[in-house]
Nucleic acid binder design. Sequence first.
DNA 1: ACGGCTGATACT
DNA 2: TAGTATCAG
Length: 717
Amino acid sequence: MLSGWRRRNGIDTEGGKRGGREFKSSNTMPVARPKPSDDRVIAHVDMDCFYVQVEQRKQPTLRGHPTAVVQYNSWKGGGLIAVGYEARKYGVKRSMRGDEAKKVCPDIQLVQVPVARGKADLGVYRNAGSEVVSILSRKGRCERASIDEVYLDLTEAAETMLAENPPERLEAISEEALKSHVLGLHLGGASTRDCVRAWFRMSDADHRDKLLACGAIIVAELRHEVLKETEFTCSAGIAHNKMLAKLASGMNKPAQQTVVPLSSVEKLLESLPIKKMKQLGGKLGTSLQVDLGVNTVGDLLRFSEEKLQECYGINTGTWLWNISRGICGEEVEGRLLPKSHGSGKTFRGPQALKTVSSVQKWLNELCEELSERLLCDLEQNKRIAHTLTLHASAYKLNDSESLKKFPSKSCPLRYGIAKIQEDALKLFHAGLREYIGIYHVRSKECQHEWAITGLSVSASKIVGIPSGTHSIMKYFHNLNQTSMTTSNDICTKDAAFLSPSGLHLADPQIDTYEDEARTGREMPTLYPVADETEVCKDPLSSRKYANNLDPIFFRTKEQRDGLTEDIRLSCSGSENGLVSEPTQSKMDFLGPGLKSEKQKKKFEKEKGNSSILRFFHSPDAYSFPEHACLKTFQESGASSSGNLLQENKQPTAGTTCSLGRNDAWSYKRDEIDPTVLNELPPEIQAEVRGWLHPQKRAKTVKKGSSIVHYFLSKADL
DNA sequence: ACGGCTGATACT
DNA sequence: TAGTATCAG
């Protein structure tokens, strides 16, 4: 009996008896299998104890000393979030408390995570990660997998090297490359290095091995550049797919790289504990162990694909079958920027928040950080986020129902600190009302019913906006001239133009809130660009925009072509005039009104900036009337959205490609004038070309679920 | 009620 | 879609 994991994820919920299974007679039919291998060259680069390195660079005297990064030094020395390798020798581990670390390693230096607005601020690490990404993205498609991890598709670069400058012709192979670990390489007699050198130069090797060798040389170069330019060391894995590359990058740390030739895969996986595989470290992995007795990846080979599908569903089953053979078709995504931003904090135990005002206070802090990061993203990457989401965790006091989860709520995101704060609070109330039950709504000040143990706000649905001759500046400039006579902020209405679906959620309506006298206000005309004269007067007209115009591209075709993702990845507050004044803890206790005063001053101060940011800094920026938005916010099950939204379909033809990192919008590829590309910075060109000519090879779909798998020849691995 | 914070993704 | 859950580091 499968327990736990499957109950939720299992696709086949009806006792595992699947209709249609009998149609798959396993041997007679040409049961196609995924290719046993592909000839891509994929690298996974993993920064070594990244936070520690960042702190050591900032404070060089820490180098060479056992060091760990800790947050919230208050309780038991704080929690470790990164441990340097010197400290690991003493047995210091992540998720130790600072005190325990001191115990096993008295000399350890504990560095605190920067704190801003009363919470840990990981901004410095994010920025450091961006530095690294900007270097690693030079040689091929690059996917930022996390703050300190990157995947690279080096296939083209490796092929080029193999054709023009193969290792065997290379008079000298870099020292770093020669230090590679090559799995399965027999080190008979000769020194390791000579062996590796010989491997790199092997002229009779499998073509795919040669590609890997080239990949390893390239990765060694890249890692060297990272070290030179950032002082950070990293480790890497080079293999034919993401899964193996990721596996390899962790095998020899720190500051080393590991190559996985095809011939080594079987043995590598045979004895590998199942939990070491990415995605199998959690409940699914446990289920494999407990329910199927699978302890190593090799053990998985005993099960037919059908059996695995019976147990875990079609997708996961096939995926398991594949990974046990070292097969993984996942593409490197080609995304240098995050898809969402979030700011959150937990309030454990006694610190749990029990009043609305304390919640509000913290929401304000979180929203402030979020807003800052959003503006940063806007200015540096020309991207706009469209959805604001509030997550909270809570428990009920004196209630058996305390297991109930606090519901997440989201709404359209309006730019401007005050707006975000206001909306976040409304979302909180919406969630709270649902959480405690609508009958208790009125007992607003009745405490001790609930306690909040975690709060977070996040911004998602981030899409790029055009740049180039008609830049974002111009866009907002127009906006400002025409419609923002009283306002300096982007708000929901703008999202009407920008939102891919035209979906508009009204502000959450909390009945305990006074309506903000929106009624009589007239809707301003809003000209997206000078030559577009459509006027948005009522809720429906926003739909018209969304339907008829590609919102972001609701300008000329030429303008559309300029779409770009700015490659300036860093988002450092101090560099862009966005830096906040030193956080004053007094502010914590000031109401929104006073805070607004502060923000006003900040805005005044920044008025001189040519930055677009000044458009959004006004705290009490004009708010578009709510009736301009479709009200789709679901309240007590009463949904007014429904049909309106469903009509709104995006054209997704076969020849569309998704722009940037967000699939929200598609457009016809052949509408793009290729010559425009040449005017973009080279790095951007590369990425845009990536969009325009996505994958040469058949696209392998997530988790091996793709039907293409079934049309490829059976594995002989 | 302790590991905090951040992010991605899949499913419904 | 919006909301939930899982996973990772």
